[in-house]
Every structure is written in C-alpha cells, then in structure tokens.
Design a protein around this nucleic acid. Structure first.
Lengths: 104, 104
DNA sequence: ACCTGCACTTTCCTTCTAGGCAAGTAGTTT
DNA sequence: AAACTACTTGCCTAGAAGGAAAGTGCAGGT
C-alpha cells in the first residue's frame, strides 16, 4: 500500500489541485458542479479538463440526461495514483521541514 | 497551537515551496546551498528570494565571511506562519479528498 | 593603477500558462 | 426559424519563471 512519492506539476497547479481533490471525493462529478466549486468559467474548466484527460488523469463521460447533454468527470485509476503520489511527495516535503517552533 | 489553514499561492509555486521547506529545516541557509538544492541559476534564485523578502517571508543577511560576501537566508516568523498555514490548507484538501481505494 | 575574480543583482528576452470573451457546434425546445 | 442549453475552440492578454549576459561592489594579484 506504499505509494511512491512523485511530485506532479500538472496536479500541483492550484486550480487542477482543487479539481482533482474534488474528484477524489466523488465518483462522477458534473461539469456545472465543478465549475461552481472551483469558480471558473465554462471555457476555463473545459480546458483544464481537456488537459487532465490528455494526461490520462480523468475519464470524461458525455451522457444524455433526458434530452440534455451532461458531461461528467471522474478520476481514472492513473489519476488516483498520480494524486496519491503527489500527496505523498507533499507529505515528504512537510516531513523534511522541521516543523519547528510555530509562533502563535 | 491551531494554525488557521490558508492556501498561499506565493508559497505553493514549486520552486518557492522547495525553497521555503528547505528553510524550515535550517536556521540560516546560504545562497549557494539553496541554489544547488533547488537547482536554479544564481539569477533565478536571487529573484525568488527577492519575491519572498518582499512578502516578508524571509530575512536576508549579507555578511562578510573573511573578506568575501555571503548571503544567508532564513524564514521570518511571518514566513513560518504562512508556511504552516499553507501546509494546514493542503492537509485540509487531502482530508476532504476521500483518500479512497488506491489501486496498487 | 589595472585587471581579474567572486558573489550576487538587474536587465533583457523568450517561453509557458491561465483565464476571459466571443464565436462555434450540436441537439432541443418553442 | 429563433432561441436556448451545454459545452468547446479560437483569439487575445496578462503574469510568472528562468536563462544569458551585463552590471555592481569589494578584494587580490601584477
């Protein structure tokens, strides 16, 4: 169950970090939901999802709910693994940091 | 001892994150040491340190060791606090992320 | 006095990225 | 046919990062 720490620049970027972390919490997440949670425009989110998809980190499902299209996204196995690796890398950084005297 | 989580974009950026985390581990760190650890050119590091100094996150000491100038850097109290807050924010993100089934 | 070297700093330049807006696409409803 | 929903793509701008090279200040050698 040991995950090799691997700092992932693609995941690290603030917006994608929030997108990915939202996705770990859910199975399929809808486009509008993500857009509102991360606070992006449709276009910006669309591009980030494309970036994540091209990296193989997310699966994108375009389904019809009734007669309206719905785009949903989830982390792929690769994406989950990359996220876990990135978190491990961050934890390593924090661990190396002495976590010394913190002035309150 | 509770640190309020506060995502800090300035600290989050990869190079500065590594600089700051190196600084938490030491008291005063020398320019050359930092430069080699983070793998930057002199100019790039100099600029990052200026950025951190302007944010009030580091103290920069220019002393003469023998007759040669030595620039050393350390985290300021502000910098330590900001780093701790950022780490707390990251931990919150990780905590919210279900940390679900990780395929090995 | 002059030139070189060290230890950075600053300037200039290129590249990359993110995000907004507006236009485009496709199917749907009125 | 026009408008609307749900995105996607193209165009553009602004900001950030980093390298190369020139600049600064002090020290030592010739």
């Amino acid at each position: 169950m040991t995950v090799e720490p691997r700092f992932d620049e693609l995941i690290h970027a603030p917006t994608r970090l929030s997108i990915v972390s939202l996705l770990t919490a859910s199975e399929w997440a809808e486009f509008k939901y993500l857009r509102d949670q991360v606070g992006l425009t449709d276009s910006a989110l669309s591009k980030q999802l494309t970036t994540l998809e091209e990296a193989g980190y997310v699966d994108i499902r375009k389904a019809f709910i009734g007669k309206r299209p719905r785009t949903s996204v989830r982390l792929s196995a690769r994406g989950q693994h990359a996220f876990a690796g990135h978190v491990a890398a961050l934890q390593e950084i924090v661990a190396r940091a002495g976590m010394a005297v913190l002035p309150d």
